[in-house]
Amino acid sequence: MTPRLASILMPLMRGVDPERAHDLALRALRFGLAGADRSPDDPILAIRALGCEFRNPIGLAAGFDKSAVAVGPLMRLGFGFVEAGSVTPKPQIGNPKPRLFRLVEDRAVINRMGMNNAGIAPFRARIAALPRPRPAVLGVNIAINKDGAAPLRDYPALYEAVAPLADYVAVNVSSPNTPGLRDLQGERQLSEILAALAETRARIAGPRPPILVKIAPDLSPAAVEPVVEAAVTHGMDGLIVSNTTITRPGLRSGQRGQAGGLSGPPLRAMSTELLKRVARLSRGRGLTLIGCGGIGSGADAYEKLRAGASLVQLYAAFAYEGPALIPRIKRELAALLRRDGVRSVGDIVGADIR
Rank of each mutant, 00 (worst) to 15 (best):
I211G: 07
P156W: 06
E321A: 13
N177P: 12
S39L: 15
R153C: 12
V140H: 02
V16H: 10
I215Q: 02
R285C: 08
E199F: 11
V171G: 06
D300H: 14
N117Y: 04
G235D: 02
R280D: 13
G148P: 10
M115F: 15
P73I: 00
G264V: 02
P89F: 00
S271D: 02
L184M: 13
L50N: 04
G35V: 03
T233S: 14
G139Y: 04
A216C: 01
Q92L: 06
L325T: 07
A149V: 03
L12S: 11
A195M: 14
L100V: 14
V16M: 13
I329M: 15
P327N: 12
A125M: 10
P133A: 07
V232K: 01
V224F: 02
M270L: 15
N141A: 10
P40C: 07
R354K: 13
Q258R: 15
A334L: 05
A143Y: 08
R107F: 13
G341H: 10
A121I: 14
H234V: 03
T200H: 12
L29H: 07
K330H: 13
E229R: 13
A125Y: 11
G264K: 00
D300I: 10
S7I: 01
S86Q: 03
L281R: 00
R112G: 04
I295G: 08
